[in-house]
Design a protein around this nucleic acid. Structure first.
Length: 268
DNA sequence: ACACTGACCTGCGAGC
DNA sequence: TGCTCGCAGGTCAGTG
């Protein structure tokens, strides 16, 4: 499940590997993956070069010469960079033939990922009503206070709301709330100023640590190009049986439609 | 306007 | 062993 740290890792890894590489041709094997007309998509990207690599929330943004390619990995999307004579597997849905006999291959077992083209200078600041980047100064206690006013949803749902802040998914939402000592089911109406400050600071600390570790490798997800993150060993509650802090049994509860892990002893 | 549910997909593991 | 079923989760459309 690529979240912000995993997407950041993929973007930075691809930047190292394919910056200024030319696409000779694109082959889309699963048309629904492309939100544009597939023929136009393939033709537009031919002979474009990967120039700049950006991320907004969980979206990967590739600035080419004349167009911007945006990709969302959803749950299981990943990029591989392989030789063009390496065998394809049946989950590789979009193939970018590069000039140097390599292919950038988008693999997605569950076919949830999407790609779309935008104008070269498209501004993604307010894209899809995405909230501020959690690592930016704009994501602070005052902002959290203003956003949650008038709302009563569980804290877990708030953190997963991409309009609140962009890039947090199920794993990091659980980890952030554990670090704050707050239960995922707690109403966002019932928190204090101190909690708001904790949410802002713990979010930044956890995401930064995860980026440093190259993201989390959990279940089916590994980063592109064989890069494996190591952050999963730092998870204190998510997918855990026992609380790393107090040894209590971790509880799992569905909140906002997602399994939420928490320690009933450490989180109130 | 807000909050919740199901659809999109496939593979995997539990249970019978 | 072999089958069915539920679950995994990011986003969005649809519903209450």
């Amino acid at each position: 499940m690529p979240e912000l740290p995993e997407v950041e890792t993929v973007v930075r890894t691809l930047e190292k590997q394919i910056k200024d590489e030319e696409i000779l041709a694109v082959h889309v094997r699963y048309p629904k993956m492309i939100e544009d007309d597939v023929d136009t998509f393939e033709k537009t990207l031919a002979h474009e070069h990967f120039r700049r690599f950006e991320r907004r929330g969980k979206y990967l943004i590739f600035r080419m010469d004349h167009v911007t390619l945006v990709a969302h990995l959803r749950m299981e999307g990943r990029f591989y960079l392989q030789k063009d004579d390496d065998a394809l597997n049946r989950h590789m849905h979009v193939i970018f033939q590069l000039k140097d006999h390599r292919q950038l291959r988008y693999q997605d077992t569950r076919k949830f990922g999407r790609m779309k083209l935008f104008p070269l200078d498209y501004d993604f600041t307010h894209f899809k009503n995405l909230g501020p980047e959690p690592l930016s100064d704009a994501f602070n206690a005052d902002y959290i206070h203003a956003y949650r006013s008038g709302r009563s949803e569980p804290l877990k749902s708030l953190l997963l709301d991409q309009c609140f802040t962009a890039g947090i998914g199920n794993i990091y939402a659980d980890e952030i709330l554990a670090a704050c000592g707050l239960r995922p089911g707690r109403s966002c109406r019932r928190i204090t100023r101190k909690d708001e400050e904790h949410i802002a600071s713990k979010t930044k600390r956890i995401l930064q640590a995860a980026i440093k570790a190259g993201g989390t490798t959990i279940r089916t997800y590994t980063s592109s190009l064989g890069v494996k993150g190591t952050y999963q060993s730092a998870c204190t509650v998510h997918s855990q049986k026992v609380c790393a802090r107090c040894g209590s049994e971790i509880h799992v509860k569905t909140i906002g439609g997602r399994s939420s892990y928490y320690c009933p002893h450490c989180q109130k």
